[in-house]
């Protein structure tokens, strides 16, 4: 029971970023490794507003999301957009370079110390055999609400559907009069905000330091790949499974192998089900 709760709790941290990653993959057709570093950026921006500036966390969090989205937009303008024709491999490599730049710019600016949000100390609630900290509940609620909101937006709104259409086939979308450039911008803003939110949620649970993203990108990727890249619903499902796998590993093996779980999941998923649980073959350019 506690294991399941912990699994849901770690899934809640990675799910928004995994949905963001999968949206970016669907729109731009490359694995954007900078998602991890952008999570860190979101966490640091939120921390800056929360601790030195002194805003409450619920006000600082949107700031973190906005900064992450702006960072993604800047990376797109400077690094990805000029290479859009170059293919997935080149863009993947460039995104790792972007991750290095963001991560180390943060280290340069903030140093390597560990930081944390200004959260009131709270006693975990004990419900029978289960312990649950109030922050944990908050993380789960915010994560679930944001992911559900994005999903509803994608399936019900005019612009959300256009994002899916542009991800499916940008050429045809343009032929039908959909403004693909604007849709891409909307996708970057939305995915960037989700990734930033993921960073904030991670910052509630984990220590905020410049290397935060490297530890998170793997479970995020694992969730997206396991669920089927390009499928937001799959990313959520993948996040739950990865969270569960991590907790079970920590239970039956040693907790030090928890971090390797993401990789094992990725490799197994790629080998056994290359298109993931809910994915399908994506048309490559």
């Amino acid at each position: 029971m506690q294991t399941i709760l912990n699994a849901i709790s770690s899934a809640a941290i990675i799910a928004p970023a995994a949905v963001g990653f999968t949206l970016l993959f669907a729109l731009f057709r490359f694995a954007n490794f900078a998602v991890g570093a952008l999570m860190t950026l979101g966490a640091f921006a939120c921390w800056t507003l929360n601790v030195p500036v002194g805003l409450p966390l619920w006000l600082a969090a949107p700031g973190g999301m906005a900064v992450a989205a702006a960072g993604l937009w800047l990376a797109d303008r400077l690094a990805y957009a000029p290479l859009r024709a170059a293919g997935g491999a080149t863009l993947l490599l460039v995104s790792i370079a972007v991750a290095l730049v963001v991560e180390n710019a943060l280290r340069l600016g903030y140093g390597g110390q560990i930081r944390g949000f200004d959260l009131p100390l709270s006693r975990p609630w004990v419900l029978g055999p289960v312990r649950l900290a109030p922050e944990q509940l908050g993380v789960i609620a915010v994560s679930a609400a944001s992911v559900a909101g994005v999903m509803l937006w994608l399936s019900l709104s005019r612009w959300g559907r256009a994002v899916r259409a542009a991800a499916d086939d940008p050429t045809l979308a343009a032929v039908r009069g959909v403004p693909v450039g604007k849709i891409h911008a909307a996708g970057i803003a939305g995915a960037g905000a989700l990734v930033g939110l993921g960073g904030v949620l991670a910052g509630v649970d984990l220590a905020i330091e410049p290397g935060l993203g490297w530890a998170l990108i793997i479970p995020v990727l694992a969730a997206a790949i396991l669920g089927g890249v390009g499928s937001p619903m799959g990313a959520v499902l993948g996040a739950l499974l990865v969270g569960l796998a991590e907790e079970v590993t920590a239970l039956v093996m040693s907790p030090s192998y928890k971090a390797a779980v993401g990789f094992v999941v990725i490799v197994l998923a790629l080998l056994l089900r290359p298109y993931g649980l809910l994915g399908r073959e994506l048309v490559r350019k």
């Binding site: 005019r158 559907r161 045809l172 039908r176 399908r280």
Partner: peptide
């Protein structure tokens, strides 16, 4: 070829077709 959005429903395809 590639004249429909494969991952969208028929209804949604018509919606995108009528974007303008």
């Amino acid at each position: 070829e590639r004249n429909i959005f494969r991952s969208l429903t028929v209804e949604e395809n018509l919606g995108i077709g009528g974007w303008l």
